[in-house]
Design a protein around this nucleic acid. Structure first.
Lengths: 230, 230, 230, 230
DNA sequence: TATGAATGAGCCTTCATTCAT
DNA sequence: TATGAATGAAGGCTCATTCAT
């Protein structure tokens, strides 16, 4: 009748325990947790939040279903962890780039390429984000990493824009958030709308050739928008 | 998730019954059918296919739940009808445009504007399409109107591109499907990723000012890509 | 993610439907509902709220488990209906009495006898009330009949007390609620604490002789308390 | 509900280990054991046997959940220990009284007062006993102290009754078990049925004034029943 | 045509308990 | 002695769908 909220073991909480035995146990626990998370990502990505089945996630892992609740408290908690991880991993786009080493125009193309590739290599990410939007962003607010990421992206892009503008290569009026949105939109759509667009226009949107071609097209679109003399 | 296709009374099948009384009944029935469809669109759009509840659709309409099965056979059949209607209605983008009356560059901007506006005015359409992609396009194949639409769009865009290229305004190497995809992506994302993008970058993506600004930006991106001398 | 409260068919709501067929259906529905209620009373009475199993209630009835939720919405709703029925049925103690026809002292004994007998014949009632107190009266507030019953009892007892006092048989300072509580306590305890008391004092508290004897004792206790000259 | 009795380490079993260190450990263990018992009493008292959660008991104590099983073997074993303790502690009613020092009538009132007060100060006891009766006395048989207590009470009351009868103050036909039951019932009900009775008759049954008043009423009821000339 | 009653299958979640260290 | 990890069984509840009238 009274529904109490139970505390769930926090990530890394077990690190306080010392000694070899405890460490071994903790390692196994981390393994279980990571394993669950990986399978959950797949399931949520494939079916969406409501379509995903806790039972099916459990079936895929070697530990029992009960562990899901032990570690994540609820289906929603598990989904939240998946979302968090997605938004953490996507940051590798930003960290893998070293735009300063390239000339502005080349750096811009590089940015597009990496972003495009990330989306294509991680359709799970795209689908989880789609799902979160279907759910009207119900859980995105709980993802802690997003604030930092926004700052990182904006400052990175602003720096690039400034560099390009100061050398007369870029227009000066490009807003970094607008630029990010444009790149994201063009890269995201190619994965997110793969099935409907592919059907309507009879295109295999995952064929290597199609991907390579589209990658160039997106880079061109962005470049011509940003560069004064394309 | 989406299973076998069951045979259901085809649309208009009941119109075979003749006489004034039957006509009156048919009218009421059509009203019911349309009503169910409207509410189902809302429900599927809000929750996705798996998240949508047949009970809740029934609760919103004045006729009983049984009617849903009478007209549409199953939840899946209802969803299919919703999808069909979405793809039928979106064709008004194409039919409302008369690109020939405008100069190529202006026509291109007009195309962007109308597409952008349609997406913003019909978030239901966007969300249904998202959902269909979450479901890996399980039902899009049953939508009959899509083939015609693809042809209409491609020929319309090709015509525009040719016109622009022949007068030296547009590049000649723009592919009509690429163009459509670019415009769609930029317009779609603004609605589809509203919640996550808005959260991450602290932007209210439905504010009139933000929409107007983004609308211009998208038009600029497309224009600068297509036009030789922007 | 959003948990909506669904409306449950109200008791007697179906009485609006007219015609023979509908009536027959309604009758069957009432049968199902009453049947569920009867079995639920048993189960809740035997095991308490938390100990009761919805599955076991379902197993005892010929309709399926799903019907429990159809009619009562939840385990709690079902329990509430059981509680309501218990407090409705107990009113037959009051309605079956016609104290005015007897002399005050005889009426008082009659009141004790009837109350004592009711408790012994309806251990379910006693156990449900015990359980509700274990649950700290979580649902008793929703029982609508209790307010009326309180008034009926108090006025009945006050009338009796006045009659006895005016003829010099009863003390004048007896409070009707105190009187009711005393009678209830003595009758209730005999059933409620049957198992522990019986064990501790090695008494079979359900043996006919023990019951008859205790019945007299309780009547005596009450009589000697109320009457000036016993 | 309550299943087979498992063998568990008897109370004090660990004290066999000798030496100072062991003693220290035993002391700590005793602390743990007592601590668990105290928290378990609370939990079982609040929720009943089935409603109580082993996890929640564990959360309240400083030692881990595993300790519960170490000391008590099972949830049922723990409950048994709680029950045992309750019936041990209630004996302080008997031991705290020295009825011989008072005149029979005064001694009787004193007995009522102490009993009444004990119930009000120990609602946990009342609730545990209620619960044991809900469970049909499944475990009361295992409580060893009850037999002794019954004898103590009966002899104490018989002695009092005899003393009062011999001086012509009490009736001679009062049975000691009947007397005990009457006092218990009147004291018990005031706590056990607090929530339902309070709701039905709109009485705050824990208000100091209400308690004091009821205390006198109960004493009066018992006195007038036992005394020849009240 | 229309509707309230009914349902089998399956979903998320929780429980007391035990294992490995 | 002590503890975090792990679990099988079951519990309350919901879903799309069909039946009887």
């Amino acid at each position: 009748m009274l529904k109490t909220v139970k505390s769930v073991p926090a990530i890394g909480a077990r690190s306080r325990s010392a000694g070899r035995a405890a460490t071994r146990q903790a390692a196994r626990a981390d393994g279980s947790r990571a394993n669950i998370l990986a399978m959950a990502t797949r399931e949520f990505s494939e079916k969406g939040f409501t379509g995903a089945r806790v039972d099916e996630i459990a079936e895929r892992i070697d530990t029992s279903k009960r562990m899901i609740y032990y570690y994540f408290g609820s289906k929603e908690g598990l989904y939240r962890a998946v979302l968090e991880q997605c938004y953490t991993q996507v940051r590798q786009i930003d960290t893998s780039l070293d735009l300063d080493r390239l000339a502005p125009a080349a750096a811009l193309r590089q940015l597009v390429y990496v972003t495009f590739d990330y989306h294509n290599k991680h359709p799970d990410f795209v689908r989880i984000v789609m799902n979160e939007n279907i759910n009207k962003g119900a859980q995105i607010g709980t993802v802690s990493s997003i604030k930092t990421r926004a700052k990182v992206i904006i400052s990175m892009l602003q720096k690039l824009i400034n560099r390009g503008a100061s050398t007369g290569v870029f227009r000066a009026d490009i807003d970094p958030v607008d630029l990010h949105m444009a790149i994201s939109a063009l890269c995201f759509y190619n994965v997110s709308n793969r099935y409907t667009f592919g059907r309507v226009f009879q295109r295999n949107m995952t064929a290597p050739g199609a991907l390579a071609s589209r990658r160039e097209t997106v880079a061109n679109i962005i470049e011509r928008w940003c560069c004064i003399k394309p």
